[in-house]
Simulated assay, not measured.
Amino acid sequence: MTSYILVWLQLGGCALVICLAGPFLVHYAERISASTGLSQSWIGLFLLATATSLPELVTGISSVAAAAAPNIAVGDALGSCVYNLLLLVLLDAFTRDESVYGRIDQRHILTAGFGVVMLALVGMLVLVARDDLDLRFYHVSIYTPLLIVLYFVAMRAAFFYDKKLAIMSDGPPWEPDGSLGKAIRGYAIAAAVVVIIGIWLPFIGQQIAEIMSWKTSFVGTLFIAGTTSLPELVVIITAMRLGRIDMAIAGLLGSNLFDILIIAIDDIAYVDGSIYAAASPVHAVSALAAVMMSGIFTVALLYRPGNRFFGIIGWVSIALITVFLLSSYILYLQGV
């Protein structure tokens, strides 16, 4: 009984530390935006997304390099994508006066589109990149460079698209406030705390799977991914309180792109072969769920629905919750 309590206390402790680090990431990211003149959407897409995805990065690398648990690594990355999109429900619930999708800039459709492409590719790889299609250069899959290139193409496209919109809006010139160095140091310290916790998480995940007799793909996708997605949760709550909704959305979508990049990095770190071949094909369910949820989000941005059930959430949120619950149930039944 003591071991049961201890492992869950460890997971709760990791969650608490991540929650405490989250607001500092938003605070210092906003100060970096003010000091550099970069838009809040771009800061969210790059800086916030990178920082809040550091647990997935460290968890993934330690899962494949130290814990020999590729299912936890892939499940954590793809599960985090699903959790990030589920957080849109929370944003919708917070905006009681109107649907949140009426307040989000449509520029985020570009990032969501790149996310669909990368998620679909990973879903396909965990299904077919084995046996005769398990093509590798040494231990690294030949499909990994494609994911890396796609990520940087997405970042470049988002940067220039954001820059183009900024020129068209002809907004006021930015003025540096002289605190860039301090903001970068604060950001780095908060990010370092998140990294340290991320190193510990895969080992906790394996203990939970053993003690509870659960499947590692289920634990990695639901519990580890849920914990490593806590920075995104804290960030969007903080950003919403500050009225920075586009920074919050950019952070969520950017985290999804970075999480897919993490799978490519995990493949490089996994010396026993291709991570796509080692991971269970059931992870395609998470990838497909994230694709569906991204599609729902894109439709909502274009359609901008206004109807709300019980004055709390709209049909978009109900659809997102339904996809999440269905994919979680399938993983519980079919996971390994």
Rank of each mutant, 00 (worst) to 15 (best):
G12I: 08
F159P: 06
L125N: 00
Y143T: 02
I208N: 03
M247T: 15
E232P: 13
L150D: 03
P305A: 02
Y276E: 07
D272P: 03
I204V: 15
S62N: 11
T59I: 08
W200M: 11
G75M: 05
A290F: 02
L252I: 15
A277N: 05
M155P: 01
R241E: 14
G181R: 08
P305G: 02
L90T: 04
G186W: 05
W174E: 13
L78D: 10
S280K: 07
V316E: 14
I43F: 04
A154W: 00
M292D: 00
D105Q: 12
V149T: 12
N71T: 09
G243T: 13
N307Y: 09
P145K: 06
E30W: 01
Y83R: 04
V193D: 04
S327H: 11
A289H: 07
T238M: 12
V82I: 11
Y161R: 12
G75T: 09
T216H: 06
I61H: 00
M293G: 06
A319Q: 07
A154I: 00
A112M: 08
T216Q: 15
T50M: 10
A300N: 06
V336L: 13
R244H: 14
G306P: 08
M1W: 08
I260Y: 00
T322G: 09
V193K: 01
L201W: 01
I167P: 01
S179Q: 15
I142V: 15
S255Y: 07
V26M: 08
V219P: 07
A250P: 11
S169G: 08
Y143A: 05
R244I: 03
C81K: 00
Y270I: 09
P176T: 12
I61T: 02
V7E: 12
D131N: 14
F152D: 07
P55H: 01
F309D: 08
G243I: 12
Y143N: 02
A188P: 09
P281R: 04
A66H: 04
Y276S: 06
R96K: 14
Y83P: 05
A154Q: 00
T227R: 00
D76W: 01
I224H: 03
Y28L: 07
I313A: 10
K215H: 11
S39F: 06
I43T: 10
S217N: 13
Q40N: 14
L147W: 03
L146Q: 01
L90N: 03
P145Y: 06
D132S: 14
L333H: 12
F114R: 00
E98K: 06
S280E: 14
S53I: 09
F297M: 12
Y161K: 08
S328G: 06
V116T: 10
L252N: 04
G311Q: 08
G13Q: 11
A284E: 09
G251W: 01
F324S: 10
V282Q: 05
H27W: 10
V316Y: 07
S274K: 02
F24D: 05
V336W: 14
E210R: 08
L85N: 03
I18L: 15
I268P: 03
D76F: 02
A154R: 00
V234N: 01
G311L: 06
A66D: 05
A73P: 09
W200N: 08
S141H: 09
A290E: 04
V7G: 10
G198W: 05
S141F: 04
L165I: 05
L38D: 03
M293F: 07
S280L: 12
L86W: 07
W174V: 09
M1A: 14
W200G: 06
C14F: 09
G220C: 11
